[in-house]
């Protein structure tokens, strides 16, 4: 599933992908079969909202409660990148 997708799409982690806090390195990571994707704070904030319930628009709204400036285009681009890599599925 690749972009473009609409902001009514509902993202969730793909099968076999886990979001975990890496205690020893004090950061969140995505765990896949043979890959560890290290996340920064904003990546983590976005992915924690990808719960299979919220739409992309809901996620942007939720981020706006935490951050002053949330460009929707950048959130969409980030989600699209993860979907392209099959870390994320976006259901319409």
């Amino acid at each position: 599933m690749t972009a473009p997708f609409s902001t009514t799409g509902v993202p969730r982690l793909a099968r076999g992908v886990k979001l975990r806090f890496d205690r020893s390195r004090e950061r969140h990571v995505l765990l896949l079969p043979e890959t560890v994707v290290e996340l920064n704070g904003t990546g983590t904030a976005i992915l924690q909202l990808c719960d299979g319930q919220r739409t992309v628009a809901d996620i942007v709204a939720a981020l706006r409660e935490q951050y002053a400036d949330v460009p929707e285009g950048q959130v969409v681009a980030y989600l699209a990148k993860l979907a392209e890599r099959r870390h994320l599925e976006i259901h319409e």
């Binding site: 994707v37 290290e38 920064n40 904003t42 990546g43 400036d69 950048q74 959130v75 980030y78």
Partner: peptide
């Protein structure tokens, strides 16, 4: 939220 790039 100046920059969004999840990969460190």
């Amino acid at each position: 939220m100046s920059e969004i790039d999840g990969d460190a």
